[in-house]
Computed example of a mutant assay.
Amino acid sequence: MKTKLAAAIALSLLAGSTFAAPTFYGEIDASVDYLPEDNKTGFSDKDVVELNSNNSFIGLKGDEKLTDRLSALYQAEFTFYVDDGENGSDTFVPRNLLIGLKDEKLGAIKLGKIDTPVKQLSSVVDTFNNYVDNKADITGILTGENRIDNVVVYESPAFALGEGKVKATALLASGEASGISKSKGGAKVAGRGLGDAWSASVVYDSKPVVVGIGYDKAIPSNFGGVGILNASQPEVTGTKAFAAANTLRAIGRINLDAGLALKALYQTSEVESVAGNEAAAANIDDAQGWLVGAEYNLPSAKAWTVKAQYSQNTTTYKVGDDFDAQQFIAGADYAFSKQVKAYGYAGYLALEQGSNESEQPVLGTGLEFKF
């Protein structure tokens, strides 16, 4: 009798409660890319065709109303690979993992593993985000594209300003006494204090224009990237280094009439001296990068969008020759629906350091499905 009564009470409580269902979402993006190898004199060149999984991901997110103003929120997101996995091993790699609280008037607090506000700025302007296994976008040659473990993030509510809205985001990170380190899908900062490393941004968003500025302080990043370079014995290898970076980034996007959008980014980065920096970072003076791009949705054929982007980064060293990376890519998308598109592109990477030069063309086509 007591068991039946307890079961009845439990069922009645569940029946009287309402739980917001989570949202299941994601993206599957795969391409076939022609990336010929152009090696040093004395080494053979090769024609190479790769199947690339371009940052495909799945996730669950949702929120639960607690009061008229307050909600609990969560997100669990993972990169997955439709080819052989990252470096032939992991099929699933953590992305943004968080839990938090949101007040309609005061903003949101999030805890977990989260993209920096500086990284989030690039999504506004990076036309070829994630192409060619995440190397043809700015991640391949610029610093600042980082996801950090063990962080507290504050997101302000959006404040009306003219025709648009202004929003600020700040991230405080706690790290390891042993110094910076790479983690699955992200990185750890140096120092055990909350805020030893931080990132922040302010964005103005309106229909005709989006502008933003952000700053990273001691955020682990990759200097001297070589983008889509596919040579096994290249003339130019860069002086790559994983190190804490102080990065200032500014972005802008203008949405013109008739479906044309113009985009730009400029940033500068310096190495912050912390434990865990790779030895090569001590020789880096700074890195200057920029990007210009355009997208045009054809008025007479709305399913088609043509686009092009040029990005460049120069890493200067205290001793030795500067390292220049220039990357151009152009292509077209055909949208079957809001969820499914096919795309094709051609691009070119040029690397230069002193008298050495390396060049890398790419030709590819792919399919993207969002859900």
Rank of each mutant, 00 (worst) to 15 (best):
E77H: 02
F80T: 00
Y81T: 01
L106C: 10
L111Q: 07
F78K: 01
I109R: 05
S89Q: 13
I109Y: 04
I114K: 02
L111N: 05
D83Q: 09
E77P: 00
N87F: 15
D103I: 11
I114G: 01
A108F: 06
F92N: 04
K113D: 08
D115E: 05
A108P: 05
L101G: 12
G100C: 04
L106H: 12
T91E: 13
I109S: 05
L98Y: 14
V93A: 10
I114E: 02
F78T: 02
G100K: 10
R95S: 03
Q75K: 08
V93L: 12
D115F: 08
D115P: 02
I114S: 02
V93T: 12
K105Y: 13
N87A: 14
E104V: 12
G85C: 03
I114Q: 04
E104G: 14
P94M: 05
D83A: 11
N96P: 07
D83S: 11
G112V: 04
G107Q: 04
G112M: 06
N96A: 13
L111E: 07
G88C: 11
N96T: 12
I114N: 04
T79I: 07
L106G: 03
P94C: 09
K119W: 01
T116N: 03
D103S: 08
D90W: 10
E77Q: 09
G107E: 03
A108R: 09
D84W: 01
G88L: 13
L111V: 10
E104D: 15
G112I: 03
K119R: 07
P117S: 00
Q120H: 01
G88R: 10
L106S: 08
R95V: 07
F80V: 03
E86G: 07
A108S: 14
A108M: 07
D90M: 03
F78A: 06
N87T: 13
A76M: 09
D84N: 14
A108L: 09
L98T: 11
T79R: 10
L101S: 08
L111P: 03
T91W: 06
G88K: 11
L97M: 14
D84R: 11
V93S: 09
I114F: 03
V93H: 06
K119T: 01
K110R: 13
S89M: 10
T91A: 11
V118C: 00
